[in-house]
Design a binder for these strands. Structure first.
Lengths: 114, 114
DNA sequence: CAATATAGGGAAGAAAACTTCCCTACATGA
DNA sequence: TCATGTAGGGAAGTTTTCTTCCCTATATTG
């Protein structure tokens, strides 16, 4: 979790939603968990573009916001599993529509890149 | 527009969509334009939480991505108007669903704030 | 004994995003 | 003449977000 100097006010729904789904990896992580990749090591293997550290940070954040639940199975070897909460499941349509839109508008957004 | 050191790859639709709708003000600006606030000075007056400079930067960016069109009416005094393109209009459902979700989940996301 | 797998975090640095300050240029109204 | 309204940008600074490096700890496998 990152320290914020300026508290945000959650004045509009958009900014609330962006706390969950904005950012570079959160939506992807939520997507992965919804598809059954519920153990940290699975996520680490799938998201090789980022380091495990990055995924962990986002998992803590999503847990803090009540999007995912963490279940620690007692005993060794360690076994941890993440699940989407009801709130977390309600985010999936947002991710879905964003993914569809992005897939259909890759060109116009992509072209002007320098 | 901001200079980027690391080019992004647009590998997934989510990241494409977030280029338009992520960030602190872009979704809000798109929303305002769709509601008829099409002149720069109108937007500046409405979004007093940010400086005009910030809005201008985002307007350039949205224009670059083909989300809005800029029409400069010739003659003085200067008159400029922005319109959503067809691509821009197709973004509105994303903003809408994000806003709804955020309004309905203010508490769980808001609570853990320090 | 060393390597790998499990799960995770502190510190520090890099990049991206946001913000403020101050500037151009023209016209109108006080 | 001076203030305000129109539209906009350069430079520099701050904040937020992302990333890398290097640690802890235990169990299993080679």
């Amino acid at each position: 979790m990152y320290l914020k100097k300026i508290p945000d006010e959650h004045d509009c729904g958009i900014s609330v939603a962006l706390k969950i789904v904005g950012g570079k990896w959160k939506a992807w992580i939520i997507n992965c968990i919804s598809k059954g990749m519920i153990r940290p090591s699975q996520l680490h293997r799938e998201l090789t573009v980022t380091s495990p550290r990055v995924i962990n940070i986002h998992l803590r954040e999503l847990e803090k916001y009540g999007i995912i639940d963490k279940i620690v199975h007692p005993g060794l070897p360690l076994k941890v599993e993440y699940f989407l909460t009801e709130t977390g499941k309600s985010v999936l349509p947002i991710i879905d529509i964003m993914e569809r839109w992005g897939d259909n508008h890759r060109q116009p957004v992509n072209e002007p890149d320098n």
